[in-house]
Design a protein around this nucleic acid. Structure first.
Length: 490
RNA sequence: CGGGGCGUAGCACAGCCUGGUAGUGCGCUCGCUUUGGGAGCGAGAGGCCGCAAGUUCGAAUCUUGCCGCCCCGACCA
């Protein structure tokens, strides 16, 4: 294994791939476009899952599970939805193999053709709304607030670990409401949950907004999203929350009797985040030494490394480490003591930096004599010697500080890379350098399409909190009421 | 599906042009020395050179066909 990572500033893609590989997060599998998530990567994902799941439960949602297979006829029912996903569906046509009569191996048994093809879910609106027909009869059955954790398959042409894989893990919330107002409130609430998670757990600032009609989810009335800026100046859509109106209810003939004793169609939302968040986490914070994890999502928050020559030295160090470990664990901090003799301490320093462990404690014979311990923090790479009696308290405070510091650093980066642009020349120049560009847009899909063709920039979102400001469209010169966020995106 | 590139040890690659003993680095095994930031030296193990056919006394190398992978575009959580 080569020692140095590629430089982030020189080749961002290669740097990203190397971190994913060498920090033991994931690798490409033998199956085209699919990913193997390795134990360390999965441990981070599990922490994300748990935090998100708690937030969903706190907002009244329950988990359930629906089938992997969607009959083709279900997917067809909502027209726009069907059209949007048709190009990337994996299809099951047979249910049996048999021995090859002409030689070795197996062949698909032509007699086992399914009457109706089954689609491997690219998303579950269709199969879920088909089920909701039997679950929803009366206003008393609403709101129906369901989430599922599952895998979905979208047959992408080109894939990248975590950011775009043919199969990915995600959660998808699917809710039904008696009124439009309530459904819109749910859509916005869940966007808020995602923004909260991104900022307070992932330490990643996001812009909340709505998508332009071009970028909307297939079948949605409105798509809300959170957009984050990566260190190479490209945008990443980190989560979406859709207001689906009554489209799916009507397509799947889901009706309820309202309080006025009238038949009505329920209003729907759906919202999801995926293992793409892992990609976001990596790209938002990591540096030339490897992954940088915010303490709240680090599977190992503190690693303790002994620095010794003899087994006797190691035993003396281990004696000092034991009570520190206990105290840290009692404080709810996950800690690992790496006394593995197969690797040298210098190797371990580099290894845990690569893996983004927030705090490293180094303890050697010199420390034992002085009553000190070395505390190193991953985000700034600062090291300092502290009195061994203070270390537990120091680490507790440090972890909190780091969570905040990592967020602030990312926020500063985003602010320094967000630009107000008013002319087409400026726009073209800036888009090459990257970043979020706040510019006026005339609101037409045609203009958006032209800008995309000419610059590869897309409208990431129309920010929710932006102030009204009249101006001229960057491209057409027509009137515009507010600025939108443009960027090149992943 | 369009445009490029690559298949040689676990990994990364050289060798191919100009055919003649299968190479280098990392990793792995063993030994000695090292040990406060990815150790040094020595010895070793490890190959269907993507597959198939052809040319040739002889093919990793030349020719043809097939298969697979990667990158750039269109698509996208």
């Amino acid at each position: 294994m080569s020692k140095a990572l590629p430089k982030r500033s020189e080749n961002y893609s290669e740097w990203y791939n190397e971190i994913v590989k060498r920090a033991d997060l994931a690798e490409n599998s033998a199956v085209r476009g699919c990913m193997v998530i390795k134990p360390y990567g999965f441990a981070i994902w599990e922490k994300m899952q748990r935090a998100l799941d708690d937030m969903f439960k706190a907002t009244g949602h329950q988990n359930a599970y629906f089938p992997l297979f969607v009959p083709k006829s279900f997917l067809e029912k909502e027209e726009e939805h069907a059209e949007g996903f048709a190009k990337e569906c994996a299809v099951v046509t047979h249910y049996r193999l048999k021995a090859n009569p002409d030689g070795k191996g197996l062949i698909v048994d032509p007699n086992a053709k399914l009457e109706e093809e089954l689609i491997i879910r690219p998303t579950s609106e269709a199969i879920i709304w088909n089920t909701y027909r039997t679950w929803i009869q009366s206003w008393r059955d609403l709101p129906l607030l369901i989430n599922q954790w599952c895998n979905v398959v979208r047959w992408e042409m080109r894939t990248r670990l975590f950011l775009r894989t043919a199969e990915f893990l995600w959660q998808e919330g699917h809710t039904a409401h008696a009124t439009e107002q309530e459904a819109v409130a749910e859509t916005e609430q869940m966007l808020g949950v995602y923004a909260d998670f991104a900022e307070n757990w992932m330490a990643m600032p996001v812009v909340q907004g709505v998508k332009s009609p071009n970028e909307r989810f297939a079948g949605a009335i409105e798509t809300y999203c959170i957009e984050a800026l990566m260190q190479d100046g490209k945008a990443l859509q980190a989560g979406t929350s859709h207001f689906l109106g009554q489209n799916f209810a009507k397509s799947f003939d889901v009706k309820f009797v309202n309080k006025e004793n009238q038949q009505d169609y329920p209003w729907a939302t759906s919202w999801g985040v995926s293992t793409r968040l892992m990609g976001a986490l990596i790209m938002a914070h990591s540096d030339d030494n490897g992954l940088v994890l915010p303490p709240k999502l680090a599977p190992i928050q503190v690693v303790i490394i002994p620095i010794h020559k003899t087994p006797e030295d190691l035993a003396a160090i281990s004696g000092k480490v034991a009570p520190i470990m206990q105290e840290l664990k009692a404080a709810g901090i996950s800690v690992k003591y790496d006394d593995d003799d197969k690797q040298r301490s210098g190797w371990k320093f580099a290894e845990y930096e690569l893996k983004g462990v927030p705090v490293r404690l180094g303890l050697g014979m010199r420390d034992l004599e002085n009553g000190t311990i070395e505390v190193a923090r991953r985000d700034t790479l600062d090291k300092q010697s502290v009195a061994i009696g203070d270390v537990v308290e120091d680490v507790k405070i440090l972890l909190q500080q780091m969570q905040e510091a990592i967020y602030q650093k990312a926020l500063r980066f985003r602010e320094e890379n967000t630009f107000l642009v008013d002319t087409w020349e400026e726009f073209n120049a800036q888009i090459e350098k990257g970043g979020f560009i706040m510019a006026h847009w005339d609101g037409t899909p045609e203009t958006e399409e032209k800008i995309k063709e000419e610059t590869k920039a897309t409208i990431r979102c129309i920010p929710l909190n932006s102030t009204e400001e009249s101006g001229k469209c960057i491209y057409s010169g027509k009137e515009s009421a507010k600025r939108v966020v443009f960027a090149r995106a992943y």
